[in-house]
Design a protein around this nucleic acid. Structure first.
Length: 148
DNA sequence: TAGGCCATCTGGTCCT
DNA sequence: AGGACCAGATGGCCTA
């Protein structure tokens, strides 16, 4: 049967990608370091730092938006020095939004982990491992489709 | 103890 | 103006 052949191919594939380069890490499952919030406490003092919302440095002036149309990833040296002054309340609100954003990102990673075949280890894949494994898996399935 | 991974904060930039 | 996105910095936790 062709299905059997594909099954064995799949098993070999999963075996290969698991053997590839995944050391036995995270054997204890996802770690729980939420709620410790040391960084939060550490940085709280900066909210009230007088230099936190300081004016432009070295006399640098804000430029029109059109003059700063530099793509993401362009050298930091060439970017404008436009500084956006926000209050401590706004900073904390931005931090909350960022935490939520990262939380949803991690949810997406968890969902991707469930889609990617792994059975050789029970360890939790790291984010970079999940991405690389997904790339390999998609390539494998694409090749499989094209060969049938 | 070093290195990997991660959570969080932060400031810059983009976009609405 | 403000939210979303991004990348750098920092420090904690865990494993080899």
């Amino acid at each position: 049967m062709e299905g059997l052949g594909q099954d064995s191919m799949f098993i070999n594939f999963v075996g290969d990608i698991n053997v590839m380069a995944f050391p036995q890490k995270h054997a204890a499952g996802p770690k729980e370091q939420v709620a410790t919030a040391p960084a939060f406490a550490r940085n709280q003092t900066r909210i009230n730092d007088s230099s936190w919302s300081r004016e432009l440095q070295d006399g640098a002036r804000a430029e029109p938006l059109g003059a700063q149309s530099l793509g993401v990833g362009s050298p930091r040296c060439c970017r404008s020095k436009r500084r956006r002054v926000i209050t401590g309340v706004q900073r904390q609100a931005a931090n909350v939004r960022e935490r939520k954003r990262m939380f949803s990102l991690n949810e997406a990673f968890d969902e991707l982990r469930r889609k990617v075949p792994t059975f050789a280890y029970e360890k939790r894949l790291s984010r970079i491992e999940t991405l690389r494994l997904a790339i390999i898996y998609i390539s494998f399935m694409t090749d499989l489709l094209e060969s049938t």
